[in-house]
Write a protein that binds this DNA or RNA. Structure first.
Lengths: 144, 144
DNA sequence: GAGAAGTAACTGTACCAGCAGTCTCTGACA
DNA sequence: TGTCAGAGACTGCTGGTACAGTTACTTCTC
């Protein structure tokens, strides 16, 4: 229970600092970086709307309009899916790729400063190992 | 960095399940429980608006209207501060105390199921110890 | 190959959070 | 004691999120 409290406070605290900082340094919030990163990791830098929804960390809903906004900013583009005219593929534009890289590089030191620096490397290994299941099953499955 | 990812996924995943479940079982969201719990832990079950704002885990802002809603539901009551007519004290009502207890008891097993059960007790200790600083400095100070 | 059932994404509406500005009150100082 | 900087909480507005209902398309069944 203390472990859960630690996780809760750590994420709330770090996100509370990182989100505004990202916003001022690169001009968009963490939710955008989340989506951009999912696309970056995907094969061909492309995903379907549903896949984004399943994988994204923050907004479970409202993906349509979130992508609308990112698309309006030119970081992402919708394309039809060959063979399924219901579906939509969302892909990174070159500009999106660039901004993702920029945002990631701005974000990393903030995490290091707010989170990494407060743990010994021993502790980092222990936490990473203990919490690995949570991000693994987000990886390999749609979950429920 | 993997440690941070673990924290992020764990909290997102568990909250994503716990919030809707709390909502259906006791009828209010985690943000309410957050506030109620802060009040429960406070001396005399009372806090000023600013103190709630500093201590609350989720919403850093919008406290005024959040308290409005909780007050409208009868779980909390505003009172004047003797000696400072600008200030407002927010206190738990008996009903609020009851609902807090109820919510807490509904919430605990969910956390246990979604989080606790996936870690060995060894790992729980390690995580709790590693992340303790984050909730300690939320305790003893307004932070920066 | 026509109709029912299911899937993928979008839209309407209501609610909630974030930000800036406002109002009232306190404490200090001349 | 008049006033003035700052503290404490509230309100208007904007924009993002959540949920339900729609539309367009696909797949399954006979």
């Amino acid at each position: 229970m203390d472990a859960w409290r630690g996780v809760l406070y750590a994420s709330a605290r770090v996100l509370g600092v990182a989100d505004p900082e990202l916003n001022t340094s690169v001009g968009f919030p963490l939710t955008w970086l989340d989506i951009l990163a999912q696309l970056y990791d995907a094969p061909g830098n492309k995903l379907r709307m549903q896949e984004i929804q399943e994988r994204s960390l923050f907004t479970r809903s409202g993906i349509t309009r979130l992508v609308d906004r990112i698309e309006a900013a030119g970081l992402v583009r919708r394309e039809p899916v060959v063979g399924d005219r219901r579906g939509v593929l969302v892909g990174l534009t070159p500009e999106g790729l660039r901004r993702h890289r920029e945002a990631f590089e701005a974000h990393l030191p903030v995490i290091e400063r707010e989170f990494g620096r407060r743990l010994t490397s021993e502790q980092q290994r222990a936490v990473a190992e203990a919490l690995a299941p949570f991000w693994h099953d987000a990886q390999d499955a749609t979950s429920e």
